[in-house]
Amino acid sequence: MIRVALALAQREFIRFLRQPQRVVGTVAQPVLFWLFLGTGFSSSFRAPGMEQVSYLEYFYPGVMLMMMLFASIFSSITIIEDRDAGFLQSVLVAPVSRMAIVLGKVLGGTAIALVQTVIFTIAAPFLGLSLGAGALAMLLGAYVLTSMGFAAMGFFFAWPMRSSSGFHAIMMVFLMPLWMLSGALFPIERVPGWLHLLMNINPVAHALVLLRTPLYMSVSEAFQNQRYLLALAVTAVWTIACLLGSMARVETRDKGGAPASA
């Protein structure tokens, strides 16, 4: 099963590299967002409890999250493309487990997101953030877990879709708001009560904690921090739930109804 999943993931990655416009789009858009918004708000924004942090720095883990979200969106759209192009049916009729099909897409999306976020991590020293080996390991773990969660969630939504326009609607009304309400753009502390509630129940907000914490805490501090541990647990549960949901979707086959004469 792992061999099949890795082969399908490798295919995703090769396809990504062979579409230069996709590479440019998924890398350039978040970076432009970060540079323009980060620079624009830097003079007027101070996060509570993080007064010394510029908006460019505050927004930095949010952009990482955005990169993972975009990578998952593009990866999920390929499910619809594969169905349209006919490729998916050849995988579905092969004697492979459905779990391998889901893992192949999810690992492919994760690999694409990893390349982008790892490259983006290079920007950390320019923000005055010094990352040790422990912080980098924590960040890498967070990248993998969060990317898998996003990719599995994208898979879950994209699987039953028959057109990419339908998926774009899901993206705009569900996936993007999840990111916007994660604390990536503004902190959770001073928002109205209803928004506070929404942001607290948003699993993506916990993923952001996983990305922000290694920038400011050592490994031992992080693993003694209850908020970090809660974020780790929530993100893991969310990722596993999305994987299981996606597998259930793939298992579903059209079933004939009761005979008309019955």
Binding site: R11, I14, R15, A85, G86, F87, S90
Partner: peptide, 13 residues
């Protein structure tokens, strides 16, 4: 093995 009416090959590969 199955050959479908629509091509089931990846044109990017």
């Amino acid at each position: 093995s199955v050959v479908f009416q629509s091509p089931a090959i990846d044109r990017h590969l």
